[in-house]
Measured scan of single mutants.
Amino acid sequence: ELREAFRLYDKEGNGYISTDVMREILAELDETLSSEDLDAMIDEIDADGSGTVDFEEFMGVMT
Rank of each mutant, 00 (worst) to 15 (best):
E1Q: 13
E1F: 15
E1T: 14
E1P: 11
E1H: 13
L2M: 10
L2T: 03
L2F: 11
L2K: 02
L2A: 06
R3G: 08
R3H: 10
R3Q: 10
R3S: 07
R3E: 14
E4W: 07
E4T: 06
E4V: 07
E4C: 15
E4R: 09
E4H: 07
A5F: 15
A5G: 04
A5Q: 14
A5D: 05
F6M: 03
F6L: 03
F6Y: 03
F6Q: 02
F6V: 03
F6N: 02
F6T: 02
R7H: 10
R7M: 13
R7L: 12
R7T: 10
L8M: 13
L8Q: 13
L8H: 12
L8V: 13
Y9M: 07
Y9D: 02
Y9N: 04
Y9L: 13
D10P: 00
D10G: 02
D10N: 01
D10V: 04
K11C: 13
K11N: 07
K11G: 05
K11T: 12
K11V: 13
K11A: 10
E12P: 03
E12W: 08
E12A: 08
E12K: 07
E12G: 05
G13I: 02
G13W: 03
G13F: 04
G13S: 05
G13M: 06
G13N: 10
N14K: 14
N14E: 04
N14C: 07
N14L: 14
N14W: 07
G15S: 03
G15H: 02
G15F: 03
G15N: 04
Y16M: 04
Y16H: 05
Y16W: 15
Y16L: 04
Y16K: 06
Y16A: 04
I17F: 04
I17Q: 00
I17A: 00
I17P: 00
I17C: 02
S18N: 05
S18M: 06
S18I: 04
S18R: 08
T19W: 07
T19K: 09
T19S: 06
D20L: 15
D20Y: 09
D20G: 11
D20M: 14
D20H: 13
D20E: 14
D20I: 12
V21F: 07
V21P: 00
V21N: 10
V21L: 14
M22Q: 00
M22E: 00
M22H: 00
M22Y: 02
M22L: 12
M22C: 04
R23C: 01
R23H: 01
R23K: 10
R23N: 00
R23G: 01
E24A: 15
E24F: 14
E24Q: 15
E24P: 00
E24C: 15
I25Q: 00
I25A: 04
I25M: 06
I25F: 08
I25T: 01
L26N: 00
L26G: 00
L26F: 05
L26R: 00
L26T: 00
A27L: 13
A27N: 06
A27V: 09
A27G: 08
A27H: 12
A27E: 05
E28Y: 11
E28H: 14
E28G: 14
E28T: 13
E28C: 14
L29R: 13
L29H: 10
L29D: 02
L29P: 00
L29I: 09
D30H: 13
D30N: 13
D30R: 10
D30P: 02
E31Y: 12
E31C: 11
E31D: 12
E31T: 13
T32F: 09
T32M: 08
T32Q: 08
L33S: 02
L33C: 05
L33Y: 07
L33K: 05
S34I: 04
S34N: 08
S34A: 06
S34D: 06
S34F: 04
S34P: 03
S35L: 09
E36Q: 11
E36H: 09
E36G: 08
E36A: 12
E36Y: 10
E36P: 05
E36I: 08
D37F: 06
D37P: 01
D37S: 08
L38A: 02
L38F: 03
L38C: 02
L38M: 06
L38K: 02
D39F: 05
D39R: 07
D39A: 08
A40V: 09
A40L: 11
A40F: 10
A40N: 10
A40P: 00
A40K: 13
M41I: 11
M41D: 01
M41S: 02
M41W: 15
I42W: 02
I42N: 01
I42V: 07
I42C: 02
I42L: 10
I42F: 05
D43H: 13
D43Y: 13
D43R: 15
D43T: 12
D43L: 14
E44R: 13
E44Y: 12
E44F: 14
I45A: 09
D46Y: 03
D46T: 04
D46E: 03
A47K: 14
A47P: 11
A47R: 13
A47D: 05
D48M: 07
D48I: 06
D48N: 11
D48K: 09
G49D: 06
G49C: 09
G49Y: 05
G49F: 05
G49E: 06
G49S: 09
G49R: 12
S50A: 05
S50E: 05
S50Y: 05
S50W: 04
G51T: 03
G51Y: 03
G51P: 01
G51V: 01
G51C: 05
G51I: 01
T52P: 01
T52Q: 09
T52N: 08
T52H: 09
T52V: 08
T52C: 05
T52L: 09
V53T: 01
V53W: 04
V53G: 01
V53S: 01
D54K: 08
D54T: 15
D54G: 13
D54R: 10
D54C: 08
F55C: 03
F55P: 01
F55R: 02
F55T: 01
F55V: 06
E56C: 11
E56W: 12
E56D: 11
E56L: 11
E56V: 10
E56K: 10
E57A: 15
E57Q: 15
E57N: 13
E57M: 15
E57I: 12
E57F: 08
E57K: 15
F58M: 02
F58N: 01
F58Q: 00
M59R: 12
M59V: 14
M59I: 13
M59C: 09
M59G: 03
G60T: 15
G60C: 14
G60W: 15
G60D: 09
G60M: 15
V61W: 15
V61I: 13
V61K: 06
V61N: 03
V61M: 11
M62G: 03
M62R: 03
M62Y: 09
M62V: 07
T63P: 05
T63W: 07
T63I: 13
T63H: 10
T63K: 12
